Structures are given as C-alpha cells and as structure tokens.
Amino acid sequence: MKTADSPPSKVTLVRVGSGQAGQRLDNFLLGQLKGVPKSHVYRLLRKGEVRVNKGRAKPEYRLQEGDQVRIPPVRQAASPPDDSQMPLPGELAETLRRAVLLEDEDLLVLNKPAGLAVHGGSGVKLGLIEAMRRLRPRADFLELAHRLDRETSGCLVLAKRREALLAFHEALKSGGVDKHYVTLLAGVWQGGPRRISETLARKGPRTQVRKVEVDEDGKHAESFFFPRRHFVDATLMGVEIGTGRTHQIRVHAAHEGFPVAGDSQYGDFEFNRRMKRLGLKRQFLHAETLRFHLPGHERPYQIQAPLPADLEAVLERLEPLDV
C-alpha cells in the first residue's frame, strides 16, 4: 500500500545544542528529515538551500553548539505509525529509573538489568538505549558508550554529550578504563590468581549466531581471574579485563576448563542444569565496578553496582568448600 506524502514543510530554523555539537551536517539533516530520500538531502546541500549561520556549508561540516541551521521546505513521505515515541510500560520505566547509579552533565551510568539487550535489532524490538530515549524524550543526545551481553547485569555507561562519548572511547583505547566483573564458574579453581592472554576471533557465517573462539589469528584479549569464594563444585571469581572483546570472559573461562555458570553458548550443560535447580535463570556474570578518567576531565569516576538479588540467592544455596 502506497503511503501519501505529507505537504511540504515550512522553513525550519534549528539551533544546535551541546549534544549535537561535533556531528556532521549531512548526518544531522538525515536525522531531522526522516522519510526524505538521502539523494534529495544531498541535493539540498549541493544547491545551497541548507544554510548554517546564513551561509552555505559542506556536508562534512562539523556543527558547533549554537549554530543555526536553516532547513528548507521539503515533502516528506508519510511514515507508518510506530511506537518509538510511546511512553514506556510503567514497570520497565520504574526499573530503569531505579537503575541509575550516577549521572552528571556528561554521563549516565546504569546498573543494567539482566535480560534487557543494550539495543534493538535481531528480533529485539526495544533495547535499553531505545527505552532510555523514550524515558527521556527531551535529551539532545544519548548514546551507548560501550556494551554488555543481554544476560549480563551491571555497570553500563551512556554518554549525554558527543564530546563525552569520544572521550570515553579514547579512554577505552588507551587502557584507561578498569572493568571489574564477578562471575560464578563451574568447577573448583586450583591455585590463586591467573592471567589469561588468549587471542579471540568470531567464527561462522554472519547470517547466524557467531561463536567466539580462541584463535592465534584473532585479536588480543587479556583477562585476570582471581578466586573470591570456593564451593563444592563451583568458584566465585573476580575478573578484571584489560580489553573488551565480545564474550571475552565467557570464552577465556571456558578455555581454561571453568565455564561461566548458566552460559548456554560456552557452558557445561550438566552443571547448568544443576544450577538451574538452585534458581539460576541466566548466566552468572555481573559488571561490578568501573574506574576511569576521561581525557580532558579532572573528575575520576568509580562506580559500583551491587550484585543482584537473583545471583545472591544462588550463592546462598551453594555448599561452601573449606580450602
């Protein structure tokens, strides 16, 4: 069914906010003119119909806070109704409000609930970032600064300004973000702390769920495991990672012969079944602490997310091991 076009819009003057500063002009326009073909947006730029501070500007121009962008009248295709702007279900909205661990003008740090993907796609209609944007519709800018697996809970950083996002990414690249996790592993860990440096690579067709494997041609990954509590057939571990590869902790743990409890992809089936009887309904992996310093910012960050009640309950049901 062909949708009718909306009538031509009027000239619009948009003042660039702090959250949009640093964005390319063409990307900014594509976001403002949803439903308008990309070719038409670039035609408007070439013809000089889009003006920045009353002057012509190239598509690659980086917007600055306070710039005034003139958007000419355009005919936009009528979009089918969607629920992206609908209020969040009350229970999810309240869960996310309670999940805030820290907020300032640059960052928003959440204690991410397990079971909630960080973004939509691949059958996930609503991810955490989409939910937060709906919860805060007036926010100029809100982006994921990094990611956690869907079943992993704990510290997750969102950037409220583009400059903060770039600064956090720079800190990640330079090794300036200390990430500390807590996990329950199958088996009794022998010895003390252990550093695992095994390169990792994704395997399998892109059209399928791709597993990560230890591979000498993969990317460098380093995890530091240290035991915290021993149980009869499991070990509670602290893990610090110097890199942030996909599934890094889960793959390194499984490679050492101590897979993460509840991990359906890399774990031990029989052990997982026993843990399920004790109430474990997801992988036991929690991003407990983040410590970092943003380049160009004086304030150091140290954020801690307490272990969720569902994981605490599993630990209480395990039999301690005297070592």
Rank of each mutant, 00 (worst) to 15 (best):
S6I: 03
P7S: 07
S9L: 10
S18G: 12
G19A: 03
Q20A: 14
Q23A: 02
R24P: 07
L25V: 00
N27Q: 15
L30M: 14
P37F: 12
S39M: 13
H40N: 05
G48S: 06
V50N: 13
R51C: 04
N53R: 14
K54I: 08
G55Q: 15
Q64H: 13
G66K: 10
G66R: 12
R70P: 01
R70S: 09
I71E: 09
P72F: 08
V74E: 10
Q76P: 00
S79H: 13
D83I: 09
S84H: 11
P87W: 13
L88N: 07
E91S: 15
E91Y: 08
A93V: 01
E94R: 11
E94L: 13
L96I: 02
L96A: 01
V100W: 04
D106F: 11
L108K: 00
L110W: 00
G115Q: 12
L116C: 13
G120R: 04
S122V: 06
G127W: 09
G127R: 14
G127C: 08
L128F: 02
A131H: 12
F141K: 05
L142I: 03
A145M: 12
A145S: 15
L148V: 03
E151A: 13
T152C: 03
L158Q: 08
A159L: 00
R162H: 04
L165F: 11
G175V: 08
G176T: 06
Q190Y: 07
G192N: 02
P193H: 08
E198Q: 11
T199Q: 07
T199M: 07
R206E: 10
K211S: 09
K211C: 09
D215I: 00
K219N: 03
E222A: 09
S223H: 02
F224W: 15
R228E: 15
R229K: 14
F231T: 02
V232G: 00
M237T: 03
G238A: 00
T246I: 04
I249F: 00
I249D: 05
V251G: 05
A254P: 06
E256D: 05
F258N: 02
P259S: 03
D263P: 01
S264N: 04
Q265A: 11
Y266D: 01
G267I: 01
D268Y: 11
F271K: 10
R273V: 01
K276F: 05
R282K: 00
Q283S: 06
L285W: 07
H286K: 06
A287K: 05
E288K: 15
T289V: 14
R291A: 09
P300V: 14
P308C: 01
L311N: 06
A313D: 15
